[in-house]
Amino acid sequence: MQVIHLQETPTDETFDEEGYLLANPDVAAVVAARKLKSGWAHFKKFGRTEGRRQYVPVSRRQLAAQAIPAARADKMRRLAPLLSRPPLEQDAQGRAVYLTSELVRTYDLSGQDGVSENGYDDETERLIQSAGEGLVLDVGAGNRPIYYPNVVNYEVVDYATTDVLGVAEELPFRDNSFEGVISIAVLEHVKDPFRCARELARVLKPGGWLKCCVPFLQPLHGYPHHYFNMTHEGLRTLFEPYVAIERQEVTPPTHPVWAIAWQLREWANALPPKARKDFLRQRVGDLIAHPAALLQKPWAQELPMAKQFELAAATILIGRKRA
Rank of each mutant, 00 (worst) to 15 (best):
N143D: 15
Y159G: 08
L137P: 02
I182D: 01
G140H: 02
D122I: 10
G111K: 05
F173E: 03
S177C: 10
G111D: 05
L165E: 05
P172D: 10
N118M: 14
V181S: 09
Q112I: 14
V139S: 04
Q129K: 14
I128G: 00
Y147T: 04
N153Q: 13
D113G: 14
L135G: 03
G166A: 11
L135T: 04
F194Y: 08
E155H: 08
E199T: 04
E169R: 04
E179D: 14
T162N: 06
R198V: 05
D192K: 05
G207R: 02
Y154I: 04
H189D: 07
D192V: 09
E199V: 06
S130I: 03
I184K: 11
Y147D: 05
D113C: 12
I184F: 12
V152G: 03
T106K: 15
L171H: 04
T162L: 06
L127E: 01
D121Q: 13
P193M: 03
D192L: 07
Y159P: 05
G180E: 01
P172L: 09
E133R: 14
Y120H: 15
A131E: 00
G119Y: 06
Y148E: 01
G140E: 03
P145N: 14
Y148S: 00
A201M: 09
I182Y: 01
L171T: 03
V151Y: 02
D121G: 15
A131R: 00
Y120K: 07
V181K: 04
Q112T: 11
R174A: 08
C196N: 06
Q129F: 10
P149N: 14
E133Q: 14
F178T: 00
L127Y: 02
R202C: 13
G134C: 08
I184R: 11
D122K: 10
A141D: 07
P145A: 12
N118Q: 13
G180C: 06
G208H: 00
Y148K: 01
D163V: 09
V167G: 04
V115R: 14
V181T: 12
L200P: 06
G207P: 06
T106N: 13
C196W: 02
L127D: 02
R198T: 10
G111P: 05
D108A: 15
A131C: 07
E170C: 10
R198S: 14
V190A: 09
L109R: 10
L135D: 01
D122V: 11
V164W: 03
G132T: 11
Y154G: 03
R126T: 06
P172V: 10
R202P: 13
R126P: 03
V203W: 01
A201Y: 03
R144T: 15
G132H: 06
G132M: 09
F173D: 01
V115F: 12
E133I: 10
N176E: 15
F194T: 11
H189Q: 11
T124E: 11
S183A: 15
E123P: 01
L109D: 09
L165D: 05
L137G: 03
S110I: 08
E188Q: 15
Y159I: 10
A197T: 06
F194E: 12
A185G: 10
A160D: 11
N153L: 09
L204P: 04
I128F: 02
A160M: 12
D192W: 08
N153C: 13
L165G: 06
A131P: 00
G207W: 01
A131T: 01
L137S: 04
